[in-house]
Design a binder for these strands. Structure first.
Lengths: 189, 189
DNA sequence: GTCTATATAAAGATAGAC
DNA sequence: GTCTATCTTTATATAGAC
């Protein structure tokens, strides 16, 4: 539709509800109430409910991608440090904001075909960054195994944290990132 | 309600739809059609839609628990072999059957409070088996790290396979289990 | 850009016959 | 145990005034 600041703000609020309730359980009336408007007004900003989801997921993936690029640019040291920085950045977008990135991961299946086609290149770009960091770690002998499987296992371990992580608990996203890297690293490297 | 063989069969069919479409998107009419009956007849077997979900999740968790117990009883060798056997069993219930265990993991949040209370002990028993196997591996020096975090990272890596695994691809659940154990094992152990 | 009012469709669930 | 028929509620989405 458009790309106004208003729409950005509404998208941000929608993300929060989608995380809390899930996309299917979130009604347009709930969304409108969260935004402080009536349900009819919502459709001035978005064509339909699907478009809200697409906007949230686009925002979440773009943000994660931008942060990951920045992280890798700033952290130009060992493969271990870079892997740790990526894991930390990933966890922070998932666990601290608790927003659009979570929706991008957990509600991707709810996108219609057109939206998936439009957004898959963003997701692919983000995953490509991960594979690059994994490759570096493999090449350095920090970790071992199949490139494809290691990437997916690591992403799985990280993404599943959304299900059990307690923000009020003793562990920070950085703690988790450190422990994960330690878990898969060969101590002899 | 009851526990007839008929109800068991209907539960099995419901599981398949819940995996394919997700619980919220699966309508009682879809369920009825899959079962070869009309939607009104469904409520002879289940009080409401929630009860179908609870039946599926109970079945999925009980089955996973039974298989895990059997696996650990039969595999009484090294901590590495036991860890591998558990991972393999877990992946097979998720990826080969593609059924009730997937629903148990991915639709748990959709259970109402009463059902969660009733089923959480089953889930806890299953997770306790995992922690036991993780503990053995830690004690043997096969893996390193925090007991709690290692368990959750491993479960995350395994559970996330549902999202990307291709049953028609070259890798078997056993391949995945082997690679995962290799990824987290210290080669010096 | 937001409102009220409402159209339209689909959902979960029930009643009573067979 | 299954059917048909239907009630009731709730959902997405639209139209037109302000």
């Amino acid at each position: 539709m458009n790309d106004s600041p208003r729409r950005k703000e509404l998208t941000r609020q929608a993300a929060q509800l989608f995380v809390q309730e899930g996309f299917d359980r979130t009604t347009v009336r709930m969304l409108a109430q969260e935004m402080g408007i009536k349900s009819g007004s919502l459709f001035h900003h978005f064509r339909d409910k699907q478009e809200i989801l697409a906007a949230v997921i686009e925002e979440g993936t773009q943000n994660a991608l931008a942060i990951a690029r920045e992280t890798l640019q700033q952290c130009d040291s060992t493969p271990e440090a870079r892997l740790h920085a990526m894991a930390r950045a990933h966890l922070e977008t998932l666990l601290t904001d608790r927003n659009a990135h979570v929706v991008a991961l957990y509600e991707w299946r709810r996108l219609d075909t057109a939206a998936r086609d439009h957004l898959s290149h963003l997701r692919d770009a983000y995953e490509a960054l991960w594979e690059q960091v994994i490759d570096e770690a493999l090449a350095a002998g920090l970790i071992h195994g199949d490139r494809f499987l290691v990437s997916r296992f690591v992403m799985g371990a990280l993404n599943w944290t959304v299900r059990w992580y307690d923000p009020s608990g003793p562990r920070s996203p950085e703690d988790l990132a450190r422990e994960l890297v330690a878990m898969i690293s060969s101590p002899t490297a």
